[in-house]
Design a protein around this nucleic acid. Sequence first.
DNA 1: ATGATATGTAAGAAGAAGCTTACGAATTGG
DNA 2: CCAATTCGTAAGCTTCTTCTTACATATCAT
Lengths: 119, 119
Amino acid sequence: MTPRPRHDAEQHADLVFKALSDPTRRALVEILSHQPDGMPAVRLAAQFPNMSRPAVAQHLRMLADAGFVTVSPRGRERIYRLSREGFESAYEVWFGRFEAFWKGKLQDLKRFVEDADNT
Amino acid sequence: MTPRPRHDAEQHADLVFKALSDPTRRALVEILSHQPDGMPAVRLAAQFPNMSRPAVAQHLRMLADAGFVTVSPRGRERIYRLSREGFESAYEVWFGRFEAFWKGKLQDLKRFVEDADNT
DNA sequence: ATGATATGTAAGAAGAAGCTTACGAATTGG
DNA sequence: CCAATTCGTAAGCTTCTTCTTACATATCAT
C-alpha cells in the first residue's frame, strides 16, 4: 500500500486511530461516505445542531491530518471528500501489526468480502 | 457477524475505537498477537518499564471491555489472550458504516487479502 | 501459618481533548 | 465598493484520560 518512513509509522497510527476514537468524527466520516461528491464545511456543520461550527472545523482538520478526507476549495467554500488514504493506512497497520494473529482469519475475511461483493 | 442490539452499537463502537486510540494498548495487542497461548498480566506489565503495573492493568481492562482480549485465571495468575471478538466488531462497524464508500474498494481489499494469503 | 507473588481497584494529580466565543482572511453578490 | 457568507484558528474553560501511590484480595511456597 502507501510506502511510509518506518519511524513515522507509530506517529501516523496515532493520528489514524485518534481520528476514529471520537463519535462526532465517525459520524462525519459516515455522512461523507454517502456523498461521493463531497460537502462544503458549512453543510457538514449544519448536521450537528448541538455543536458550534468551529468545533466541527477542528474535527475536520483532524480527519484531514489522518488522511481520511481531502479538501478542495470551490469559490469561498471548501469541499470535503472522503479519501481512501486514511482507510488504507488503517488496514496497513491492522494487517501488518497483527499478521501472525490473522493467519487463519484472512480466510474468513476473504469470504466476507466476497459475500458483500455479490450484492 | 455478531448480532448486536441496535442501540448498543454506537456505544460499543466507542469502546472498540477508544481501545485502539492509545499507543500502549496497541502495543499490548501486538505483543499478544505473537503469543497464541496468552501471557500473565505481570509479564505483560514487564514489557513497559516506564509504566507502573496498575497502569497496564487498567489498559488491559479496557481491551477486555472492548472484546480484544479474554482473561482466564491460572493459579494466582490471570492469563490474557487475544480474542477475535473485538476485531470482528471493528470489522463489522467498519464495513457496515462505510459500505457505500467501500463499494469498489472491496475489490482491492480482496486482492490484498489474497496476496497476503499466498505467503 | 507466614511471607512472598500476582492481581485489580480507588483516589488524586497531571496532561490531553473537546467545546465555545471572538477574531481575521478570502470570496461572492448587489 | 461594501455587506454578507464561508472558513480556519487562537484563547480560555471544562471534561475526559492516563498515570502514580496506596490498599485489599487471592494463591503459592516453605
